[in-house]
Amino acid sequence: MKIILVINPISGDKNKTVFIDFAKGFMDNSKIDFELYKTTGHRDCEKLNQLIVKHTPDKVIIVGGDGTLNLFLKPLVEHKTKVGFIPMGSANGLAAEFNLTKTARILFKKYVQSHETKALDVLSINDEHLFLHLGDIGANANLVANYDKDEERGMFTYAKHFWSEFQNLKSFEIDIKTDRMQYERKGVMLAICNGKKFGTGIPLNTIGKMDDGIFELVVVKAMDFTDLIKATLSKFDEDHKVKNLETFQAKTATIKLKQPQLLQIDGEVVKEFTKLEVKVLDEALSFIKHQT
């Protein structure tokens, strides 16, 4: 067996040295041939693609946040590589989607030993940006961008930018044409969903499934303080529903905006757009099952 282990050393401000030592020792003892790749922020996707072409691994196991996995989707999809994901980032929405509640060591061993996979859909925006979980434009994307610019980290800093964005919410016009219908809406945010929850655990899309061949567009029409409290409660009790949401399902969608809006995907800021072409790539990613 050949494994490529990909580590994002700075994701989530978590020290991964102990885990790396464990993983290397486990593979050495198990007589598994492996390559270790640490991201640098410079041509990482291209470099992983080169490693996959050179070594044709049986599995790629990625350690980092949701954005780390998204970064490598293109070569993983193109080469139909079996992939495992260990959440150690700031945004860990995928951990909730996949029920990745075990420790990093246990997850790693299960991925190495598992012989089963599950095919997951991947979403594409403008034939350029691939992602597995959630993307959005509007209020949350602005919050993420401002948080990224801040030198401070942690919940206090996040709360500061959350409150600032809440106080300055502005609606914008959204024209949506899907393979099913056409809609004109106004909202403070539009989410493009393959999954259900933000990395914070707050549920946004209650009907989403990552293997159903469709995605959801969720328009957040308005938000008041009561909505924020209920959203927070929803993290712990899914009987609480966030108000002022409207959800559309589609296989393809064209989204047009009169004013440029910032796009973020799983905690990674992309750039401003006035038009988004969204489509689902059916069963494009082969995800290793960790529960057998």
Rank of each mutant, 00 (worst) to 15 (best):
I202M: 14
L132S: 14
A139F: 10
R153L: 11
Y158N: 09
L233H: 02
D237T: 09
L204S: 06
I214P: 06
E173K: 09
M210C: 14
L143C: 07
N146K: 10
T232D: 07
H133G: 04
E184N: 15
G154A: 10
H240A: 14
R180T: 13
I214L: 15
V220A: 15
D212R: 07
D148S: 15
D136A: 08
F215R: 14
T206N: 12
T200G: 15
V219E: 08
L217D: 04
G187P: 08
A231N: 03
L132M: 13
T206F: 11
Y147M: 12
H161N: 04
D227K: 01
M210V: 12
A145P: 07
K186I: 05
D136W: 00
F131D: 14
W163Q: 07
H240R: 15
L228R: 04
F162V: 08
D179G: 10
G201I: 10
K221D: 08
D175I: 11
D148F: 09
E151K: 15
L204A: 08
N168I: 03
D179V: 05
V219F: 03
I207V: 14
M223D: 03
V144D: 02
D212L: 09
F162M: 09
G187Q: 11
I229R: 11
T157A: 14
K209Q: 13
N168M: 02
G213Y: 12
L217W: 07
D227W: 00
V218S: 00
P203Y: 10
A222E: 13
C193S: 13
G135T: 00
G199K: 03
R153H: 14
A191R: 00
S164L: 06
L169Y: 11
I174C: 01
V220K: 05
A231K: 05
E184M: 09
Y158V: 02
V218R: 00
V218M: 01
I137A: 09
Y147D: 02
K196E: 07
A139D: 02
V188L: 12
L217F: 04
D212N: 15
M189I: 09
L134D: 08
E216R: 00
D224K: 05
N194L: 08
I176C: 04
F236Q: 09
D227G: 07
E238S: 11
V218P: 00
D150A: 10
I202C: 06
V144A: 06
K197N: 13
D224V: 03
I207T: 13
G201Y: 09
S171Y: 04
A231G: 15
S171G: 12
M210K: 14
L217K: 07
L169A: 11
F162R: 00
L143G: 02
I229M: 12
A222M: 06
R180E: 14
L169C: 12
T200E: 05
D211P: 02
N140F: 01
L190C: 08
I176M: 11
E152Q: 15
E165G: 02
I137F: 03
N140L: 01
L169H: 05
K221Y: 01
D227Y: 00
F166M: 10
E165K: 06
G135M: 02
L190Y: 06
G138R: 03
R185S: 08
D150F: 10
